[in-house]
């Protein structure tokens, strides 16, 4: 479990993290979202003891990172895949990491196998593609078989197979009861990965909730309806709700009535339905809705 309590960090007069409190629970994948400059990286660095908070505290199972005896056995982190000396081989990189936390050398082969780098273990890391570096970073994070895992943009540079792999890996780690904390900008990816969300903007907490609840709260549910008696149906629905026509296939998109209510109405009036699909909002819509005031930086299109 990771607990941040009134965490604060400023650089000169810029406030990066402002009175931020949250809890990351074990057994779930928790997404960490926020616009650029929201303070995500700073927060992750404070969790790991790399940056020192100006106020507040962040604890890992009740302890500071710096006071963990063998930190890699407790916490595995992938913050930046490029934190490897380019002239050092993947194997050597993992070797010094393992040695520093009293882990058996056999573990190196295990994690290299897990991430699929066994064949290139002896090659210098500087020649790795971004995707391979990312896998090496994951190997480093898994090395100590830690209960808590932190990933910053883990799919960066991975190809579709790698993306699917890492999503499944994170789910599996959470299913094993570990705490998995993932920061990412790819909301379509995060909506498939994270069960819980912590959303920040301008260094402040915007939401801590389940992904489902987050989307539900910030977006409006709607129902897509198609019928061979479209005009009749539209008349029926328009009396009780807002109806918009989809320009592509002329389906009706209904706001303000549930699918069940529409189904009952149609059956009562003998209207045939060819489709009756409840549509959920996307994580992206919800995110844009809630963070629109917290974006640092706007493009004009």
């Amino acid at each position: 479990m990771i607990e941040a309590v009134r965490l604060k960090k400023h650089y000169g007069r810029t406030i990066a993290v402002d009175d931020l409190s949250f809890t990351v629970c074990p057994g779930r994948v928790t997404g960490f979202l926020g616009p650029n400059g929201a303070g995500k990286s700073t927060t992750m660095r404070m969790i790991l003891g790399l940056d020192r908070p100006n106020g507040g505290d962040v604890l890992i199972d009740g302890q500071h990172y710096a006071s963990l005896k063998h930190p890699l056995r407790k916490v595995g982190a992938l913050l930046d895949a490029k934190w490897v000396h380019p002239n050092r081989s993947a194997h050597s990189h993992l070797k010094w990491l393992a040695r520093s936390n009293g882990l058996p050398t056999s573990r190196i082969g295990d994690v290299l196998e897990m991430v699929g780098l066994t064949a290139v273990a002896g090659k210098r890391a500087g020649g790795f593609s971004l995707g391979m570096s990312q896998r090496l970073g994951v190997a480093g994070a898994l090395l100590g078989d830690p209960e808590i895992l932190l990933f910053d943009e883990p799919v960066n540079g991975l190809d579709p197979e790698g993306i699917l792999w890492i999503r499944q890996l994170m789910h599996r780690l959470a299913d094993e009861g570990r705490t998995v904390f993932v920061s990412s900008h790819l909301l379509s990816e995060m909506s498939q990965t994270a069960q819980d969300l912590i959303v920040i903007g301008r260094g402040k907490l915007i939401a801590q909730t389940t992904t489902e609840q987050f989307i539900h709260d910030a977006t409006e549910d709607r129902v897509r309806v198609r019928s061979p008696q479209a005009d009749r149906l539209r008349e029926l629905l328009a009396a009780r709700a807002t109806v918009i026509e989809d320009a592509v296939d002329h389906a009706l998109v209904v706001h303000g009535l549930s699918a069940a209510e529409i189904g009952e109405m149609a059956a009562e009036q003998g209207v045939v339905l060819h489709e009756l699909s409840p549509q959920r909002g996307s994580l992206e819509e919800a995110f844009m809705q809630l963070t629109s005031e917290a974006v640092d930086y706007h493009a004009h299109s």
């Binding site: 003891g49 710096a66 930190p71 890699l72 490029k82 934190w83 490897v84 010094w96 520093s100």
Partner: peptide
């Protein structure tokens, strides 16, 4: 300085917070 240049210093401080 190469540890700082390549970011490995952070990996070092993660592995050995002291």
């Amino acid at each position: 300085t190469t540890e700082y240049r390549f970011g490995t210093i952070k990996a070092t401080f993660l592995a050995v917070p002291n």
